[in-house]
Design a protein around this nucleic acid. Structure first.
Lengths: 205, 205
DNA sequence: TAATAGTTTGATCTTTTGGTCAAAATTAAA
DNA sequence: TTTAATTTTGACCAAAAGATCAAACTATTA
């Protein structure tokens, strides 16, 4: 498909508008305008708003979930996995800044849709299961506390990497955070967060 | 205002629908149905959808931001402040489970609106400024590391307490998390998260 | 109790918005 | 170069959704 073909332009525009305003907030007219084409052409290529949305949904989740899973699949130990996770996951989000708000919104409006998608993408190797194995190994080696739990760990890791992207608009307003300052903050977090999480796993004393 | 007055019923219904579906996803008809009244009555009491939304917006943020601020205003030391924060903040969110998604969405569609609200509510005593003072005290006493930064600390605290509510629908699907199990998770986090954060602040060794 | 003010409703209007369609323009094929 | 297929457009349609209004109903009060 050519770079500036109508399809490409539509998909790009739709991705932008849907991910920013959600399904109900998005307007076909706005997408058409942004793509520089007639509204009818939208329906020519993608029969309906819903079909177009489904395209975007698939596109966005496809470029996100598999990468997300790959990050956790690794043969290194838990500490290394955590280090790599924050670096890769935050980098991934930097390339798709509005994926978090999109997925969180979708999750609230259509939990089943995301769930089905995840079932397909994660199948056997769910992040939760993977973490569980690594944790068991760590405990067996006496490297981490015995009460470490995979769900809590995953929630903490996801919280810390995703939340800044959800609150980015606020950050930008509050502290006069420029785009560059935000980038700096993220780079700093890529290094600090693994330390923070690992410290919390270590046995006391 | 009486408990079951139309106004009350409308506000309750509107709060539910708006916070679940957002402004553009909400339907006046649905609000009317949920309130058990005629759609015209909605317009009789609140001239327009936007006006009604503004009411809800004010109501939701009013019951949230001031409490949020109160939590951080305290004369105890940083560690105590952190402990109290997680307990109170998570409890507050438990009583308003869909506030996080509402505010995050609003933040993305209308950053200025939230910003103005915060400016009014926080005025002089911004949480950021308050944390900064506590951190300085802690550093002066040699209790915490010297490179601790108030923005990062606040982001971490907010991330860890808010994110579970944003991803609750997923949790409920993935691990067959029931409402009770979710509550249990939260109670556990109220105790674990202060430890996690405090550990990350302590000087090495 | 009669009159007035306030409340509630159903019908209806208007605007917004997703969607269709025939015709024009463009590209590909014969 | 003519013909056929494909793409693009503008005009229009229909449904959805917010808003209005006069009439009916209820409560207040003079």
């Amino acid at each position: 498909m050519k770079e500036d073909s109508p399809e490409k332009k539509i998909l790009e525009a739709a991705k932008f508008v849907f991910s920013k305003k959600g399904y109900s907030g998005a307007r076909m007219q706005e997408i058409a305008d942004k793509a520089g084409i007639n509204k009818s052409l939208l329906h020519y290529y993608f029969r309906s708003k819903e079909k177009l949305y489904d395209h975007i949904f698939t596109e966005l989740t496809n470029e996100f979930f598999p990468d997300f899973n790959k990050i956790l699949v690794s043969d290194s130990n838990l500490f290394k996995v955590i280090e790599v996770f924050f670096d890769n996951h935050i980098s991934l989000l930097q390339k798709n800044k509005n994926i978090p708000i999109f997925i969180i919104s979708e999750l609230n409006n259509n939990p089943e849709k995301i769930y089905k998608k995840m079932l397909g993408d994660f199948a056997e190797n769910s992040p939760v299961a993977l973490l569980k194995v690594k944790i068991k190994e760590g405990i067996a080696q006496g490297l981490i506390r015995e009460d470490v739990n995979e769900i809590n760990l995953l929630i903490n890791m996801l919280s810390l990497s995703i939340f800044p992207f959800l609150s980015a608009p606020m950050l930008k307003l509050v502290s006069g955070f420029s785009e560059e300052k935000f980038t700096l903050l993220l780079e700093q977090r890529k290094k600090e967060l693994p330390k923070l999480i690992i410290k919390s796993l270590l046995p006391d004393k």
